[in-house]
Simulated scan of single mutants.
Amino acid sequence: MNERLKLLRKALKLNQLEFAEKIQIGRSTLAGYENGLTNITDRSIRDICRVFYVNEDWLRTGEGNMFRARNTTNEELALQVGKLLKTDDEFTKNLFLEYLKLPPEMKTLFEDFVHNLAKSK
């Protein structure tokens, strides 16, 4: 599994620090995993699969494709709304609710604003 982990990180074009930060472990922990000095924890496996859309069977056994299919828009929306409901982020909850209440022409204006905002990054 350590070799597949290293292969995955390189496929994602991430260094050890970048990869480790995304799954919230230390770089030295990741290095231990990749070098086979430390067994990869089940929690790290779950985090790797969740964050990078990795096929868990591939990571554990080498069977199948490296990546699993990304969620459909509906699946991703359900996942994000579920996460939002579990937070105390009242601003985002209210923003979402107010957007849904907008008439279609106002939604179009808001969408244009968001797209222009994203382009300005």
Rank of each mutant, 00 (worst) to 15 (best):
88 D>W: 06
47 D>N: 14
1 M>V: 12
109 L>R: 10
74 N>G: 08
53 Y>C: 11
99 Y>Q: 04
43 R>T: 11
55 N>P: 08
10 K>V: 14
87 T>M: 02
50 R>T: 15
106 M>T: 08
118 A>C: 06
74 N>I: 11
121 K>Q: 14
99 Y>G: 02
117 L>K: 09
60 R>H: 02
99 Y>M: 12
93 K>D: 06
107 K>E: 08
102 L>F: 04
40 I>F: 00
84 L>Q: 12
15 N>R: 08
22 K>A: 02
14 L>R: 12
103 P>V: 07
20 A>I: 07
85 L>M: 15
103 P>W: 01
30 L>D: 04
57 D>S: 10
94 N>Q: 15
65 N>A: 09
11 A>G: 04
111 E>P: 04
90 E>N: 13
73 T>L: 10
82 G>R: 01
72 T>K: 05
95 L>Y: 04
27 R>L: 13
99 Y>H: 08
83 K>P: 10
103 P>F: 03
40 I>S: 01
108 T>Y: 02
84 L>F: 12
74 N>C: 12
52 F>E: 02
4 R>E: 10
108 T>K: 05
74 N>V: 11
102 L>Y: 07
73 T>Y: 02
64 G>D: 07
96 F>H: 06
52 F>G: 01
34 E>A: 04
67 F>I: 00
21 E>D: 15
113 F>C: 05
20 A>H: 07
76 E>I: 00
13 K>Q: 07
42 D>H: 05
84 L>G: 11
51 V>T: 14
55 N>E: 07
20 A>T: 03
9 R>S: 03
49 C>E: 02
38 T>E: 06
115 H>S: 13
74 N>A: 14
42 D>E: 14
25 I>A: 04
85 L>A: 10
33 Y>A: 03
26 G>H: 11
55 N>H: 13
54 V>T: 01
62 G>H: 05
97 L>R: 03
72 T>D: 10
91 F>D: 05
3 E>G: 03
66 M>N: 12
68 R>G: 01
5 L>H: 08
45 I>Q: 03
80 Q>L: 13
55 N>A: 00
99 Y>A: 05
96 F>C: 09
66 M>D: 07
54 V>F: 05
29 T>P: 02
101 K>A: 13
70 R>Q: 14
75 E>S: 03
1 M>R: 06
29 T>E: 05
55 N>C: 04
101 K>L: 15
62 G>D: 04
45 I>C: 00
35 N>R: 14
55 N>W: 08
68 R>T: 05
82 G>S: 07
69 A>N: 08
91 F>N: 03
6 K>Y: 09
77 L>V: 15
58 W>F: 04
78 A>S: 11
85 L>H: 07
16 Q>H: 10
69 A>V: 01
66 M>V: 10
85 L>W: 12
97 L>P: 01
53 Y>T: 13
51 V>Q: 13
37 L>V: 06
85 L>K: 14
60 R>N: 10
75 E>P: 11
92 T>P: 07
73 T>G: 07
104 P>S: 10
80 Q>F: 07
73 T>P: 00
13 K>F: 10
52 F>W: 00
